[in-house]
Design a protein around this nucleic acid. Sequence first.
DNA 1: TAGATTGTTAATCGATTAACAATC
DNA 2: TAGATTGTTAATCGATTAACAATC
Lengths: 210, 210
Amino acid sequence: MSKPEGVSISVIKRLPRYYRFLGELKEQGMIRISSKDLSAKMGFTASQIRQDLNCFGGFGQQGYGYNIESLYEEIGRILGVDKTRNAILIGAGNLGRAVALHMSFEKRGFNIIGIFDKNAALSGQMIRGLPIRHTDGLYDFCKENTPVVAVLCIPSAAAKDLTPELVKLGIKGYWNFSHYDIASDFPDVAVENVHLSDSLMTLSYKISNF
Amino acid sequence: MSKPEGVSISVIKRLPRYYRFLGELKEQGMIRISSKDLSAKMGFTASQIRQDLNCFGGFGQQGYGYNIESLYEEIGRILGVDKTRNAILIGAGNLGRAVALHMSFEKRGFNIIGIFDKNAALSGQMIRGLPIRHTDGLYDFCKENTPVVAVLCIPSAAAKDLTPELVKLGIKGYWNFSHYDIASDFPDVAVENVHLSDSLMTLSYKISNF
DNA sequence: TAGATTGTTAATCGATTAACAATC
DNA sequence: TAGATTGTTAATCGATTAACAATC
């Protein structure tokens, strides 16, 4: 029930939100919910909720609604957050540090096993219980530990330089905070971009025009 | 030419990308570009580029294309990054610090004038040349300095508690890193959400299914 | 059984792409 | 002028919403 060939990116982007709301409802001890009630809480239409969920399977029951706990589990499985994938983080500047310290990687299916920075002065410093390693050691580290995900908290130019090597080393997923467009050079890896400055400019627009 | 009643959010979200690419082309010393050539570089269709730009005005010239410098300026104006809006940052944890230090607020129309945290132990510590202030001083600070934007690097619960006061104090724009849904409680302010954990889960999905 | 609510098909709406006349 | 390329209208495509029969 989670082999979804043609699920659109619009649907996928809503899944984390479902997961989050269902998690909260579960915490609150609720057992079941209808698409109608969920729509009121989440701000999607009931129709959209049913459509979205039915991309992956019939998780509900007529006349009853959805069981919160099992739907939560299902969506977690669809998202893959029940897996554990080894990941490395590259760039231990302000952003890299914050991402390393702030994100609950484990809750989302990731396990940070190495942190790298090209600034040798940082080498050995500890973040999150892990030593910062120099990027020179990346090759050996990957050969030994076979991480499959990289979190890129480095500038575009560095990302562009490094990515071909990372791809060669078998890194299949990229959480990319740079503006380097990985996907267009390497169409076969999974990329999720976080463009904070784009988001800030979008806010600027909204303030100007709303 | 930048009074756009019905420009869709899809178009708006692409503007920062145009701005970024045009900035690079300008740096490279290029003078003009056609929608066709720009489409090759950016990965949008030429048609979409022309449609998007024409939401705001006719910036091109038949038979010639677009002047890069002036289009860059125009889009900057549309985005409002030529303005300077006073902003406060709330939450000086890992994320707040990184955002304060990492983002070029000035280049995007913002000026950070105050940093706040409810943890009194941090008070007085300097970030970016600004002292961390205790949130108790928020009211007086806002009355005196009238910031119009808040960057929220605090947990949902804190955001939910604080936002009504911020709205009352005249804050009109919110760069929201929390999961608290400001827009549904306060439909009249501008909100741009950054949901990093949603993004990470989307990556998880992509890795599982691409 | 009757009421509720799903899963799913059909209708609508919006966004993207294609086409082309206008014009530099 | 001829060639290039826009601005804009029309066609297509995809996503959202509405409707309803199936069924718990």
